[in-house]
Design a protein around this nucleic acid. Sequence first.
DNA 1: ACCGTGACGGCGA
DNA 2: TTCGCCGCCACGG
Length: 114
Amino acid sequence: MTFMRQTAKTPTDFESRVYEAAAKIPHGSVTTYGAIASAIGSGSARAVGQALRKNPFAPEVPCHRVVRSDGSLGGFFGKTSGAILTRKRSLLEGEGVCFDTAGRVEERFLKRKP
DNA sequence: ACCGTGACGGCGA
DNA sequence: TTCGCCGCCACGG
């Protein structure tokens, strides 16, 4: 992958798969940590989150299109709350993604089971 | 090699 | 429906 340039440290095998899976998410749609986990054959959505947590390839890897299973935002740039999340939401809205009154992405934009 | 940490998720209360 | 507890598993100290 072109975005796999050398920066800080060499991604592990697992991390590379996470980034590649995330890179496939089409503009205007959203997926979940769990969906990526099963897509790359891991039973842990949490482990996926950990890989994205220090995503060295932003914005080539659109990690803002990865949210929680319940539709809530999850984290962004290492934070799980705060203004940075507003940023994440803005990016998604800019791609046409809509949110409900509870601040969760509407079901129709989620690609859970590929 | 062991242990704590975490951008998660399912389930019971 | 929301909240808390616990299982998950890769990473770094």
